[in-house]
Simulated scan of single mutants.
Amino acid sequence: MVSDDATLPLDDRGLAYGDGLFETVLVYDGRPRLWDYHVARLLDGCQRLGIPAPSRATLDRLPRQAGPGLQVLKLVLTRGSGGRGYLPPQTAEPRLRWQCTPFAANERHWRDGIRVRHCALRLAIQPALAGLKHLNRLENVLARREWSDPETIEGLLSDHEGRLVEATCMNVFWCRGERLETPRLERCGVAGTLRQALLERLPISEVDADPRILNEVDALWLGNSVQGIWPVIRLDDTEGCCLAEWKLTDRHRELQNSAQQLLGYPVLPPAGVS
């Protein structure tokens, strides 16, 4: 299902410049998961970009448009048309578009883990946009073009100063000893809603980290608010050569099941149990 008017004119600033925001929300039988976190991030983005925000009532109606079962709601908010070149209009008339599509989670990745690699592309540092899910995602597109091997599921991104930031469409978590950690995102990267919910519920420290730290961690995960948490079983360099491997343990399941509960997914059995 899509919004009544899903088209965008060529002069829409979201289409022309990436001048806008988007959210992808897991919805089950019309009930959105982590909805307050998605709305809070969208409203924060509106404030920081200077785009008039939709009313909460308008936003709250959207998940109810989803059909039965598991769906993903994608909503896109642009500044609208107008202005001259990059100069935005003094009074913006934003456009809100949305669609709902059926979704099935990748249970094999939950159960068996995934292989990932480092990307050669480096993220630009821009604190004014850090954390936002804005429409300009060309860095992620270029990074995702770096590999075509279907066995490699995700790529890890660092910034221009060599700090680990995120994966192309997921946040990163790891365990060193008894310490759970995730990269700081004050300079760049997307502050995921699942990441925020986990930070509020678990003792996860936000740290500045060199990507080489991952070669020695006890466990590594990637996650977002649609797919949940995937454990990593192999990490490769930018050429596809293996840097580290992990066997799945119950330690992996602890973080995964915290995410499963937040998203309404089934709790996973202990590692090694089908």
Score class of each variant (00 low, 15 high):
R41T: 12
L42M: 10
L42C: 10
L43M: 11
L43H: 13
L43N: 09
L43V: 14
D44Y: 02
D44Q: 09
D44S: 11
G45C: 07
G45M: 00
C46H: 03
C46Y: 07
Q47E: 15
R48Q: 10
R48H: 11
R48C: 09
L49F: 08
L49G: 09
L49Q: 05
G50Q: 06
G50S: 05
I51G: 11
I51S: 03
I51Y: 11
P52S: 05
P52I: 05
P52V: 08
P52H: 07
P52L: 07
A53L: 01
A53G: 06
A53C: 11
A53W: 02
A53F: 01
A53K: 01
P54H: 05
S55A: 10
S55K: 02
S55W: 04
S55H: 02
R56M: 12
R56H: 13
R56G: 12
A57C: 05
A57L: 05
A57E: 08
T58P: 03
T58V: 05
T58M: 12
T58H: 08
T58E: 14
L59P: 04
L59E: 05
L59Y: 00
L59K: 01
L59N: 01
D60A: 05
L62P: 04
P63T: 11
R64Q: 15
R64L: 15
R64D: 13
R64K: 15
Q65T: 15
Q65K: 14
Q65M: 15
Q65Y: 14
A66E: 06
G67S: 11
G67T: 13
P68S: 13
P68E: 10
P68D: 13
G69A: 09
G69Y: 13
L70S: 14
L70W: 15
L70T: 15
Q71I: 11
V72I: 14
V72Y: 09
V72D: 05
V72Q: 09
L73G: 10
L73C: 12
L73Q: 03
L73V: 10
K74D: 10
K74R: 12
K74P: 10
L75Q: 05
L75V: 05
V76H: 12
V76M: 10
V76R: 08
L77S: 07
L77G: 07
T78H: 01
G80P: 03
G80F: 02
S81P: 12
S81Y: 06
G82W: 01
G82C: 04
G82Q: 01
G82T: 03
G83D: 00
G83M: 04
G83A: 01
R84D: 06
G85R: 00
G85F: 00
Y86T: 03
Y86L: 01
Y86I: 00
Y86K: 00
L87I: 10
P88N: 03
P89G: 08
Q90G: 13
